[in-house]
Computed example of a mutant assay.
Amino acid sequence: MRKEELFVKRGNLLWEGSRMMLPEHKESWLKLQQEESYIPLHEPLSEDNWQELGLTIMEALSEQHCVTVTIWNEGRYLPLDGVITKYDDLNKRIKLLFDDDYEWLNLRMIKDVCRKS
């Protein structure tokens, strides 16, 4: 193989090892990615959806079975698996117990609750 043919087939290998990104560029690129993937908070649930959500929460609370709660958090929907241990009607929130920790979840941020199979 001649030297010219080798040069043509190697593509852009001359510059492959010298790629770099400035911290400012990386920061702005990550910010852009975050803005593009941002999902706004869902509209308030309808009365029927609230009743269905409330029934599912009360059933999970009384039977202590594992549920998957989909919540909105900083522009993304996150599924959380755990057991609902308390319902705080005054502050409109539920307590979700994980393996060794718990978290209070605001009902306004909850989009869906379903029983985990």
Rank of each mutant, 00 (worst) to 15 (best):
K31V: 00
L32A: 13
E27G: 02
E63T: 08
Y102R: 05
L61V: 00
L90K: 12
E16H: 01
K31R: 14
G75M: 09
Y87S: 12
A60W: 01
L97S: 15
M1E: 11
G17W: 00
E52A: 14
H65N: 09
K95Y: 13
M109A: 10
E24Q: 08
M1K: 08
W29L: 14
I71D: 15
D101H: 03
V83P: 10
W29P: 01
E27D: 12
Y77A: 05
D48S: 11
V69I: 08
T68G: 00
G75R: 01
K31C: 02
W50V: 02
E74I: 10
S117K: 13
S117W: 12
K3Y: 10
D88L: 08
E27F: 07
E59K: 02
N12I: 03
R115I: 10
G75T: 07
S62Q: 08
L30E: 15
L61G: 00
E36V: 03
L97T: 12
R108V: 01
E74V: 08
L107E: 07
N12H: 05
K9F: 09
L22R: 05
P79I: 01
F7Y: 05
V83F: 14
R108E: 15
V67G: 03
E5L: 05
F98P: 10
S117V: 12
L96C: 13
